[in-house]
């Protein structure tokens, strides 16, 4: 067991898989010699050399397309897109090529490709460098989507993604890079599609990911002082989605609050709500509620950025409101 940051967990996961498997290669903008703009990949280039670890031009489409071609011919590439806000620049390659390549070929290929990008608000990066990308990517069968919230899950899920025979997009939340936690470097890789009950409780189910998970836990701590006991679930991966864990929890708590760092319209939380409405409606004693960014955008000014991204106070208020309705 080692104490390390979420950032170091990324480095350790990449290094561990590159040591284990010669077919793993890694490239992206400023990832090799500079070690990443968020200093997430220092030492990888030095350890594995210029053939397997490469800096690319600022060419997001070419990065993803090249990674795809390498993945279907025998390599296991990790491609970095730096900011998740740049995913739309490479959207054709991701959604028309990567996601569909196996299907369109009638199963002739597997696509063992990992795409990494940093996402999320709270750092003052402004409107085009602060978004969460997961909801954009959920309407494309063929992709998997992981959103680790802790150093241990980052280490486990990133290694699982690299070993997976399908394309997996791993989104790293920028505000969590300095988060410290215990990581078992000898542990088996994580399991894609497995949520975790991070804090058991009886009064309602709080579903969240990444930065919102930590804020939900903060809210739960404060609510506990008043004898309110939320059950907090970290989804960990959105595709596949662990509906079973959500439904089982709602069966016990009868109430559901979903916390998303995303605009409300088309957010992933709507899918969780629909799932529970479809398959767990009769467990519920109250309407399903969502806390999110409404339909607004992230501004540069800290006064506005802090206001739009859900925080522990807003989550707590939503919990109290939900409990008061029944």
């Amino acid at each position: 067991m080692r104490r390390m940051t979420y950032r170091q967990a990324v480095t350790e996961a990449i290094a561990a898989e590159m040591r284990r498997d010669d077919s793993v290669v890694f490239f992206g903008e400023d990832v090799a010699k500079p070690g990443g703009v968020f200093k997430v990949t220092p030492g990888i280039y030095e350890e594995f050399g210029p053939v397997r670890v490469r800096d690319t031009p600022i060419s997001e489409q070419a990065i993803i397309g090249t990674a795809l071609g390498a993945a279907i011919t025998g390599l296991r590439p990790i491609a970095e897109l730096m900011f998740a806000d740049f995913i739309p620049v490479a959207m054709d390659q991701i959604v028309n090529q990567v996601a569909k390549y196996r299907f369109m070929s009638g199963g002739q290929f597997t696509v063992p490709l990992t795409i990494r990008a940093s996402q999320g608000g709270g750092g003052g990066f402004g409107t085009q460098h602060s978004q969460c990308a997961e909801s954009w990517l959920m309407n494309f069968p063929g992709l998997k989507l992981a959103v680790p919230a802790t150093p241990a899950d980052m280490y486990g899920l990133l290694r699982a993604a690299i070993r997976d025979d399908d394309p997996v997009i791993v989104l790293e939340h920028k505000s969590l890079y300095n988060l410290v936690g215990d990581v078992d470097l000898e542990a088996a890789p994580g399991e894609l599609g497995k949520a975790e009950i991070v804090r058991p409780g009886q009064d309602l189910t709080l579903v969240a990911t990444q930065q919102m998970l930590h804020r939900a836990l903060e809210a739960a701590e404060s609510l506990a002082e008043d004898g309110i006991s939320p059950e907090v679930i970290d989804l960990r991966t959105l595709v596949p989605l662990d509906g079973e864990t959500i439904l089982r929890s709602v069966q016990g708590t009868s109430r559901l609050l979903i916390v998303e760092e995303a605009p409300r319209l088309g957010g992933w939380g709507a899918n969780v709500a629909a799932l529970v409405a479809d398959e767990g409606l009769f467990h519920l004693d109250a309407p399903i509620k969502r806390v999110n960014m409404e339909n607004a955008l992230i501004a540069y000014s800290p006064a506005l950025e802090d206001e739009i991204i859900p925080n522990a106070r807003k989550i707590e208020e939503a919990v109290r409101q939900l409990l008061s309705e029944t």
Binding site: A67, G69, A70, I72
Partner: peptide
């Protein structure tokens, strides 16, 4: 185009 480049990279 880049998909062929990936095969060339391999």
């Amino acid at each position: 185009l880049p998909i062929a480049m990936g095969a060339a990279l391999t």
